[in-house]
Nucleic acid binder design. Structure first.
Length: 422
RNA sequence: AGAGAGGUGGCCGAGUGGUUUAAGGCGCAUGCCUGGAAAGCAUGUUUUCGGGAGACUGGAUCGAGGGUUCGAAUCCCUUCCUCUCUGCCA
């Protein structure tokens, strides 16, 4: 969440930056400042009352010790009024704090100054594109038909076992998936990321830490019996490794990678968007996460973007890089780049990666700090990116690499497979 | 899952209702001493929200949340976690 300190210092800047998201934050920001003022005033009053009570309590103790019971009892009566007053102030302080917190939770991150204005994905800025769009033969098919023809993925079987959006990968389909996971993890390790296998369920505090909560109905599956959430991305458990940590400035940059299945409810999706592998309730992903010094986080964001580019180029997939506009950016992000690959039979771009700098938005919730050059505690910056999400990569490989008598496999995966053509 | 034991500052560890303002030790920081260091001595050292230009100063904080009391690390309730034993299981 946003730092209250920053809102106090320059509320116009905050309102101004949030308008890039198409959000008029005037009322919210002003109530934050009002509540903050009220909170401090109330706390001063409460502290004062409690201070008096502490003094009197000590006096009572001293009187009892001295055997002066009458005087002690007289003072006891005095505290009744004080405690009454303290209760009221405590109640109103906690009400104010709750209200203040609720509003702070409603405020999204401030977009970086380079984020373009805009409401929808149509206004995202295409930064670059690379790779030739393949020319397919006349009988070319979308991946869901190929998956059936070559017996790679069984969507109906997944419906039988679980429900829509939970496909079953079979034979060479499963092996190709596994090869991609290994390829991505090996590349990440070469790029300096430490591999992690995180828990696939997280508690409520972790959900709040990275910003998935409060908003639970939207995307996460919830196991009520144990009060746990299935992770929608490895970002959640991996970033929460650092919840409450105090780092040293020499620790930066911290680079972690993790493969995990991801579970998303995706309420409200329909139509061609959910066809085949395009949008699933369970999918595989390799994620990269970095924790960085605030002065270097944008350098790191660029490094991560370059890293994802290199993966797509090694896989020989045509891609384009988008800088998201304010309206399309996630709640917690300050700047997000999306990668899309071209899936030649569907003739559409599919998002396969999202790389974001959250600046201190997550670390403020996580209480992820470090001792800076002056020995002061300061919030670290967190970043993450998909590297990469599997299903749409698989979809575009199947579609783009199909030839008349089968499906070829990107060369870079050959060492990971016992076959080089399906 | 059942029974028992436990959770106190950066770490160890004392503390069963009021000089605890959390003893003592280790570690760390600063100073004295020294040619320099060690030892020794002295001072400081949980975290966090406030007030104050500052020197200073108020509140909260002993796993977490409630309660009893004028007053709670200490008593009561709830809950989480760790350890030991038993059971179950890949």
């Amino acid at each position: 969440m946003l730092q209250l300190q920053k809102i106090r210092e320059d509320k116009d800047l905050v309102i101004n930056r949030l308008s890039v998201r198409g959000l008029d934050a005037n009322i919210l920001v002003n109530s934050v400042l009002e509540l903050d003022q009220k909170r401090r005033e109330t706390q001063v009053k409460l502290d004062d009352v409690l201070s008096k009570r502490n003094t009197i309590s000590k006096e009572i103790g001293a009187f009892f010790k001295a055997g002066n019971v009458d005087e002690a009892n007289r003072l006891k009566e005095e505290t009744a009024l004080i405690n009454d007053n303290a209760d009221k102030l405590r109640k109103s302080l906690s009400d104010i704090e709750k209200e203040l917190n609720d509003i702070l939770y409603q405020l999204p991150n401030l977009p970086h100054e380079s984020v373009p204005n805009g409401k929808t994905s149509a206004e995202n800025e295409i930064v670059m594109s690379k790779g030739d769009i393949p020319v397919l033969h006349k009988e070319a098919k979308p991946h869901w038909d190929l998956a059936k023809e070559y017996n790679l993925i069984d969507f109906e079987l997944g419906v039988k076992i679980t429900g829509a959006g939970f496909p079953v990968y079979k034979g060479k389909g499963a092996k190709l998936q596994r090869a991609l996971i290994n390829f991505f993890l090996d590349e990440a390790e070469k790029a300096g990321y430490k591999e992690i296998i995180p828990p696939y369920m997280v508690n409520e505090a972790s959900g709040y830490g990275t910003g998935q909560l409060p908003d639970k109905e939207g995307q996460m599956y919830y196991v009520s019996e144990d009060d746990l959430y299935l992770i929608p991305t490895a970002e959640v458990p991996v970033t929460n490794i650092f919840r409450g940590e105090m780092l040293k400035k020499e620790d930066f940059p911290i680079k972690y990678t993790a493969y995990s299945p991801c579970f998303r409810r995706e309420a409200g999706s329909y139509g061609k968007d959910v066809r085949g592998l395009n949008r699933l309730h369970q999918f595989e992903k390799v994620e990269v996460v970095q924790v960085q010094h605030p002065s270097k986080s944008y350098e790191t964001l660029n490094e991560m973007v370059d890293y994802v580019k290199s993966l797509l180029e090694k896989l020989e997939l045509p891609y384009r890089l988008l800088k998201l506009c304010g309206g399309d950016m996630g709640f917690t992000s300050a700047l997000t780049y999306d990668f899309e690959v071209y899936s030649a039979a569907q003739e559409r771009w599919l998002e396969v990666s999202s790389v974001s700098n959250f600046e201190s938005y997550q670390s403020n919730r996580l209480k992820l700090r470090f001792k800076n050059e002056n020995g002061k505690k300061e919030l670290a910056h967190t970043l993450n990116g998909s590297a990469l999400a599997l299903p749409r990569i698989l979809a575009s490989i199947l579609e783009n690499f199909q030839v008349e008598d089968g499906i070829e496999v990107p060369k870079v995966l050959h060492p990971y497979l016992s076959f080089d053509k399906i």
